[in-house]
Write a protein that binds this DNA or RNA. Sequence first.
RNA 1: GCUGGAGUAGCUCAGUUGGCAGAGCACGUCCUUGGUAAGGACGGGGUCACGAGUUCAAUUCUCGUCUCCAGCUCCA
Length: 578
Amino acid sequence: MGPLLIMDLNTLRHSCSHVMAQAVKELWPQVKLAIGPAIEDGFYYDFDKKEPFTDEDLLVIEKKMQGIIASDEPFLQEDLAKEKAIELFKKLKEGYKVELIQALPDKNVSIYKTGKAFLDLCRGPHIKSTGQIKVFKLLSVAGAYWHGIETNPMLQRIYGTCFETQKELEAYLKNLEEAKLRDHRKLGPALEFFDIYHEEAGAGLVFYHPKGALIRTIIEDYEKKEHLRRGYQIVITPHIMQAELWKTSGHYDYYKENMYTFKIEDKEFVLKPMNCPGHILIYKSKTRSYKDLPIRYFELGTVYRHEKAGVMHGLLRVRGFTQDDAHIFCLPAQLRDEIKKIIDFVFDTMKIFGFNEVGIELSTRPEKYIGSEEDWQKATTALEDALKEKGIVYEVNQGDGAFYGPKIDIKLKDALKRTWQCATIQCDFALPKRFNLAYIDAEGKERQPIMLHRVLLGSLERFIGALIEHYKGEMPLWLAPTQVLLIPIKDTVTQYAQEVKQKLESNNIRVDIDMRNETLDKRIRNAELNKTPYCLILGEREAKQGQVSVRKKGSGDQGAIALDKFIEELTNQIQEHR
RNA sequence: GCUGGAGUAGCUCAGUUGGCAGAGCACGUCCUUGGUAAGGACGGGGUCACGAGUUCAAUUCUCGUCUCCAGCUCCA
């Protein structure tokens, strides 16, 4: 047998997961099998075993797998009548498999056999024989619920991956290493952007240090300016509001487990988990005419949500975060256009921050929801139509919408092609109804506006996390907290360094000065590690001629130029970035 | 919340088979005044995550709590 002409990587990985399961069964016959599919970067198999698998176990399993591969056992497929299959797996005491077969609609089920005794329920396809597996590696063990349902028993999942060549495997492992180097949880604190790990303050709460706060401020300023330019109005609403309001909005009934509530003098208050009710109160503060619509309220709204312990993750999942949140109140006739405008706004914003690739998903009605089916249908159609009219390709996530409406999620892709959920656009007929929102139409009749909820960056925390990983902590010039670091060579030039600093500052360039009693080399190394875009080396030569010696991060010494010239060039470069 | 792993100086980590805790970097002082990625000397710094228990003695053993990590579930 020659090699496969077209090797389907998924098939290969799926087969590899079978081999792993076979190895596990041979080593621990009492282990029960659940499922073992191929996934994006490899495969896994879920096992029911009392004692946890250890890292040493993984090595033992790998060795066993190598044996199975070496003996080149064929994958044999066979169709069995459903009843017979159930009987067979009952006899094998594979309860999970029995459950799976019982759930299958067909009369016959497909079984694969490898080796002497390894049988698995499987649709296939598989490679011809185990010898076709060349390179594989078991990566980790983790718990996973049977069928992914929280109340089901927890199984042990072994993750592994498999490639056609050693080279590809190494590239994959290298990519994992690369991702580790970009980890914002490491880089953020190391670069003094933020920290998040104060046990005494509580989990999931972010402390922005000066540099991180500066980055965030730059982003916020950009957003405020851009929203005003695009016809939004900035509003600011309270952080605590009484429970009454959240009962009206439905959050109290549908979102309670995530809300921070407290009682003062018999009144119950809620720390806001969302900004919508606040914006709604502003809308309701007076009678609105159809001529006023659309009304677009924007708020950098800080919200608190009690996420379950164990789901927090760096800046990506926290308990207190700030959304670049807007609510648009519009006429039915304006809906599609408003959605399209938001989509454009999202794309423009992503581009500004250096993300050029996105993935788009439409999420439909979940099990827990408010509002009528008819409104859900209308809202979903509006979102779909806007996407279609813009010629955007999207995936559908059934049942993944918010409780008050369907949504479009726009996920950005970073330098390593990983996706980040940031922007979302939600169409909502339910809250306007609950709050009795109204406008007066051309005939003088009261009508109900439609409400759009949307965020562009999502949460500033998550977005900053994405930025750090995308740029590996090396912020683009316009976002870099320190754009230029001055390094006076010795203290005879500190006077000149001060002058340069002032001149740069008066040109709105963010500048720091490193006057520490350290060698030039040491201070340069430091600047490189801090990922400062530019260093200006200032010695007596430069002072004499009004020049600066430019060092660019990553590309080294650029030679000396006149200070004014440097300012001009840098200013241009900062402008270009945005 | 669930399964498994972990918590020693600001950071990266060593160490104590139960007997007053260590390195490098960082920080401070002094020397050095340097031309593009680590100059030198000396020094300060720890309730060994927190709380109970066992013990003559706990950072080390046991239990509980908190936090973090890999996932599951959930999500901006």
